[in-house]
Structure formats: structure tokens, C-alpha cells
């Protein structure tokens, strides 16, 4: 039976070996795991299981065209992510996926594309950038806006430098606090949005980061004139089953794992304003 439709397989993790671990920041690593991403679409996630500790939803952050390995960028915020982040090459994790919806790359073709990432939010967007670069002619202007607390909390710094050197990609990186001899832009990522040189009515925007950052970014994009149906966010509510059954990740009528994580902003705008108890 097709694994994607087999309910038992959806809950049964496969074992994957850690091939490499790259430290991104003090609390974040990128793991390379053996085995392909089962044709994942940028924006999708897997449930990664740290044996004996628990399972977490972690986005696929690597190249969607590679069929031999997957990458995950993990920020240590609690027991599971600490255990995953402490793994060494040769270690193993449980893995099931890919799950959820992806970023609307097909729909974005032929127009301008704005990618807004805050903190760990760059992880699920990295496959988008890699996919866009492999098919650059399909899009008009492409802008990547990246925000981080400080320089030492920026992810993929080498790759960011490579992307910034390209003439067909506008990359703006901004930090809140200009520590570590930072001489680049200082201020929140939302401040970069009003100054974008795009045709708003033909723009698709993909926004990922903590909810407050996504909310303020979406507001700026709408103010710029980007239609709300063209603004997409990734709703990363804590989840358990990942297949739309348990309701752990429910936001209003949506199951983030099943209807998302990537959703049009107009479907969640009201819900993102609601405080969780």
C-alpha cells in the first residue's frame, strides 16, 4: 500500500542515520539524515523522533531536488529538540513524513516573489529559495528579507552570503541588536517591506517566523498592496499526530498539521490575533 495512505505507516517512524551535524548558532543545528525526502514539497515537515524522549514536527530545510538525504534545522527549546540537537554523526532518529501543505511555488510563477523569514523561520523557506534558484527564469523579481535578533543568531550564514552576491536575488538581512561588529541593517524585518520594489498586485509573499512576526509582516504586505490571498504563512502550532486526527494543533476550524502548516493569511488572520489559553 502507498505509505502516504497507509494509516499504520503514517504512525510508524522509519529509522534514519545522522550523516552530518552543522552548528548554525548557539542553540541551533542542521542535521543531514540518510534517505530522501519522499518527494517533499518546500514547506512540508516531518515528525522527527528522538528515541526515548519524544517526537517533534520539524520542517524539511534542505534541497528538495536531493533524493539521497534530507536536512532539518533544529532549535533547542525543550526536551525533544535538545535531544535531537545533541545527536552526533552515526546517531539515529525516527522519521515519518512528509506532512502538511507546501509553499505555493507553482502559483507564484510569472510574478514577483517576496520571502520573509524571522529566526528559525528561514528553515522551512530554504527549500523554496533553492527551488526558485533552480528555476529562476520562472519568476520576476525575487526578494528575500531575513531578520534575526543578532548576528550570532543568523542561520545559513555562508549560503546567505552566496545568495547576496547574486544579481537575480535581492537579499536583505537585518538584526535587532548590532552586536559582534555588525555593520549591516539594524531594525525589525517588517521595516524592509514598505521599501520593496515589486508590483504588489502580482506579488506572492511567503512569510515564516513566530506568529507575532508573521502577523506584523502580513500587515505590512497588505499595506503595500499585496492581495491577502497572495500572502502565505506557516502556522507552526505544537502538534502530536501530524495527520489531522488528534486535534492538538487545532486553531479555530483548522488543523495546522493537515490544513497547514502553510496557509493563506486570509484563512488565519483572525485566528492569529486570538490569544491561546
Amino acid at each position: 500500500m502507498d505509505r502516504a495512505r497507509d494509516p499504520v505507516a503514517l504512525f510508524a517512524p522509519e529509522t534514519r542515520e545522522v550523516l552530518a551535524v552543522r552548528r548554525e548558532t548557539a542553540d541551533t543545528v542542521t542535521l543531514t539524515l540518510a534517505g530522501g525526502g519522499r518527494g517533499f514539497v518546500p514547506g512540508q515537515f516531518a515528525m522527527v523522533y528522538a528515541f526515548g524522549v519524544g517526537e517533534s514536527a520539524i520542517s524539511l530545510s534542505g534541497d528538495p531536488y536531493r533524493s539521497d538525504v534530507v536536512e532539518h534545522t533544529v532549535r533547542n527549546v525543550g526536551a525533544v529538540t535538545a535531544a535531537i540537537g545533541a545527536l552526533k554523526p552515526g546517531g539515529v532518529v525516527g522519521w515519518r513524513g512528509p506532512f502538511g501543505t507546501g509553499w505555493p511555488l507553482v502559483r507564484a510563477r510569472g510574478g514577483d516573489l517576496v520571502i520573509v523569514a524571522g529566526g528559525i523561520g528561514l528553515a522551512p523557506l530554504r527549500p523554496v529559495i533553492l527551488a526558485v534558484m533552480a528555476d529562476r527564469g520562472a519568476y520576476r523579481r525575487v526578494a528575500l528579507l531575513v531578520g534575526a535578533r543578532r548576528k550570532s543568531e543568523l542561520l545559513y550564514t555562508e549560503q546567505l552570503a552566496e545568495w547576496r552576491a547574486r544579481f537575480d536575488l535581492e537579499v536583505e538581512v537585518t538584526v535587532d541588536a548590532a552586536t559582534d561588529n555588525w555593520r549591516g541593517s539594524v531594525g525589525v524585518v517588517t521595516r524592509l517591506i514598505p521599501l520593496l520594489d515589486v508590483e504588489p498586485s502580482r506579488t506572492t509573499a511567503m512569510v515564516c517566523g513566530p506568529e507575532v512576526m508573521m502577523r506584523f509582516s502580513a500587515k505590512e504586505l497588505l499595506r503595500l498592496g499585496v492581495p491577502s490571498r497572495n500572502v502565505f504563512v506557516s502556522v507552526e502550532r505544537n502538534m502530536k499526530c501530524a495527520v489531522g486526527l488528534c486535534g492538538h494543533c487545532q486553531i479555530g476550524p483548522l488543523f495546522a498539521c493537515h490544513d497547514g502548516a502553510v496557509v493563506p493569511y486570509d484563512r488565519v488572520a483572525g485566528l492569529m490575533e486570538v490569544r491561546e489559553a
Binding site: 532549535r75 535578533r149 543568531e153 531594525g187 517566523g209 513566530p210 506584523f216
Partner: peptide, 19 residues
């Protein structure tokens, strides 16, 4: 006002795990 709002966001950890 835009600048003030941006400054407020800059003061909180907008990108932190609990933002």
C-alpha cells in the same frame, strides 16, 4: 508611528521561540 511600532517590535524578541 511606523518607526515607534518597529522600535517596540525591535525591543521584544520578535524571532524568539516564544514570540
Amino acid at each position: 508611528t511606523d518607526r515607534l511600532q518597529a522600535t517596540r517590535l525591535q525591543l521584544m524578541d520578535l524571532y524568539g521561540p516564544r514570540a
